[in-house]
Amino acid sequence: MPEKNHFFDNKQNVRLIMWLLVAICFVLVIIDLIVHRHVVHPIEALWSFYAWFGFISCVFLVLVSKLLRKILMRREDYYDAND
């Protein structure tokens, strides 16, 4: 009996989730135009500050981590010889 087809086996469902994510992001920045966010620090008042800060943070995090891999990464059994 062939295995039942699961939700993410269908590429269309993956695409659906992605479009949903894009739509949510879009709505969130649109709301930012309409709703006045109460701010403590002036930088928060920038348009959709949290949105682009989150995006840039994560891209920065991943790119730096990739660089760190060049310095930090060793074989899986790196310590085994010494222990």
Partner: peptide, 18 residues
């Protein structure tokens, strides 16, 4: 608080987008 919920959702959804 409305501002805070919106801010947090922006931060998280755009991290997910990243």
């Amino acid at each position: 608080d409305r501002s805070h919920v919106l801010a947090q959702l922006q931060l998280l959804m755009f991290s997910a987008a990243a």
